[in-house]
Amino acid sequence: MSGEVQSEVTTLLSAAARGEAGATDRLFPLVYEELRRMAGALMSREARGHTLQPTALVHEAYVRLVGPGGDGGAVSWENKAHFFGAAARAMRRILIDHARRVRAARSSAASGGEAGAELPTLGSGVTGGGVSGDRAADDLVLLDGALESLRTRDERQHEVVMYRFFGGLTIEQTAGVMGLSAATIKNEWSFARAWLLREMDGRRGGAVS
């Protein structure tokens, strides 16, 4: 982490806070680069057992890029909001890219004959059949597309999902960042969640069983 980057992030955050056009967009690659590096380490095998917690990750990135948040109120909530927005977008790209790679790897390895074999069943959520990773990858890619549809329909709901899902923020934190009441966020989230699930199902082609 160079001092240069740190100061650039700080400058961009201030610019974004002043409403300067494009500041947030220029913030994104910096945040993305840092998050990708951190996430990459976490997702690799040597770091297994650790959790990829977006909130923790974003906070850590924030501290690295901007400096400790609590230093005498130097960083306003508004600044943080811009940062979290950029971070959520970054997380989204990181995750979706990752999911695409998992899928690509799977299809190139699809010649194996194990797919239909039934594993011993061990109960709720842990049923055999090797679902989770592949399905999660599929679902994330579907989510990405569904989220784009949502953006064209309702930007605010899209934003809530970005903060909540990719930013890992709670309802209250999202409310703080967006300057809305927690109740509003909760309602927006609730509707967006149902809407996205339906959209994802539609895109899946309804052929799950």
């Binding site: 790897a105 989770s132 679902d139 994330l140 989510l143 909540r164 699930l197």
Partner: peptide, 22 residues
């Protein structure tokens, strides 16, 4: 809500163990 409910964290965790062929 599946993936939506586990959050990005859970989704990432799910991706991790199968992050490649075999």
């Amino acid at each position: 809500g599946g993936v939506l409910d586990v959050g990005a964290a859970g989704a990432a965790a799910m991706l991790t163990p199968t992050a490649g062929p075999g």
